[in-house]
Design a protein around this nucleic acid. Structure first.
Lengths: 248, 248
DNA sequence: CGTTAGGTTGAGCAATATCAAATTCGGTGG
DNA sequence: CCACCGAATTTGATATTGCTCAACCTAACG
């Protein structure tokens, strides 16, 4: 294939060094993670199964995955999307049981992040990383809360608008999207399982967004033509960042 | 008033000592928390405002609260219910910004849990507490995921069934409910904001549950008459606990 | 080129929302 | 104890959103 899917060198620095300034030895630790590929998962394979014990922490180096739960009759709900730079199974010490399945959407490249878990624990030696991991955890929670609000109280149009803004925000903050353009390896069926809608309704809502000139969406690429409008429609708010100045 | 609302002495031990055996000095630390009341919040007051900085960790000693987000036009979504024994603002080190408002449902008594945050950090000295906090965090995530699935893919009836089962499970595991009976200080409007439904529809769905003999629900008390049926209807699964025997 | 997964369209329907008007309940002052 | 008040619940009628079913189309891929 023409341009090999190369691990962007700065991915982890972008992810963990954005809100917090990292010391050299902390950046070095991030680099060791990039040097420790754990494996490659095929699309539709499970990175983790609900109920299984989580043995180690991993970081997605490339590809998309999602947290998903399935009901007995086959209904599925995507809990959240996992993007490059996101961690899986990263907790502090005890190893626990996965509370949802993690499913690969595309091919997914995973690196071993067990030493990142170690750094989180050892805040004395890795103050920057520990703080960064806190920020990341808070950000994750922010988006999880956004997903709940979307599903509980927003209309189909709003849900999709909000979801696209979330993707755009998360990817561009990691240097994985520019000009509001992003790779979109999701079928409409998967989008439906994110948004708690039927495929048909997703399709119609997307067409409306296209008609209104707000997005372009092909099989593999999403272009947000009018980000402010989408943000307004979906009431999307970027997560609060830690800041130096008080909030009043 | 007749029976003063006394802090149940075993609340924190029940919450944190259930999955993990705690050492004496760890139990002692829990007791110091119970000795450090931070304040009392009136119904409808805010324990924390979205966007505000979280300064310290607290634990609810009595009363109910909820995480809530509000949309511009007034639509509200309850993200999760906060019960006695639950922590608020408990993170590891850095103090961050609240990603949702915490609203008191009833009068709420809060204790200072900053030393619990300290114990989480200092796993060497508090191995049991640190592990317990991990388990609790995993449990919280389990219920958050449950909320997403509920809202995204379950019917009104299923959502309410699942929600009631969650409450029953969480309260009884802390010794705050027996025989599937529990205090229910929520109006139907608040239940609607949990379940992502309209008040009217909640009302009708509750009546159906009553007709079917599955629950009794008065203004202040919920009796689950047929817990297995409700669990089945809502596909409620208790969170996985850490266990000694392998899962296969 | 044929196959197939994914996308699109139309028609009818079901679940749930909205609106508006009772009614009940828990307190509260007389 | 009674009458009253506001909040919460209940009811009826109607509207709407989003779902289901079924067919058809399109593009990627072997």
């Amino acid at each position: 294939m023409a341009h090999a899917q190369r691990i962007s060198t700065g991915l982890l620095s972008a992810r963990f060094g954005r809100a917090v300034t990292l010391a050299d030895h902390e950046i070095a630790l991030l680099h060791t993670i990039e040097m420790r590929p754990r494996g490659i998962f095929a699309p539709d394979s499970r990175l983790l199964a609900e109920g299984a014990e989580v043995r180690t922490a991993s970081i997605i180096m490339s590809g998309w995955a999602c947290y998903i739960r399935q009901l007995a009759d086959g209904r599925r709900q995507v809990l959240g999307i996992v993007l490059p730079g996101d961690a899986i199974g990263l907790s502090r010490q005890v190893q626990l049981v996965a509370s949802s399945t993690v499913l690969a959407i595309t091919q997914v490249r995973v690196a071993d992040a067990s030493n990142l878990a170690g750094a989180w624990r050892d805040a004395a030696r890795y103050p920057g990383l520990a703080a960064a991991l806190d920020v990341v955890a808070a950000e994750d929670q922010h988006f999880l809360f956004g997903q709940i609000t979307r599903l509980g109280r927003q209309t189909a149009y709003e849900r999709l608008a909000h979801f696209f803004c979330e993707l755009e925000y998360r990817l561009s903050s990691r240097g994985l999207s520019m000009n509001h353009e992003l790779m979109m390896p999701m079928t409409q069926e998967l989008i439906a399982d994110v948004a708690g809608l039927s495929v048909v309704h997703v399709n119609r809502t997307l067409q409306q967004m296209r008609r209104e000139g707000r997005i372009e969406l092909t099989r593999s690429k999403l272009v947000i033509l009018d980000l402010p409008a989408l943000r307004e429609a979906g009431e999307f708010h970027a997560p609060f960042m830690t800041r130096s100045s008080p909030v009043k």
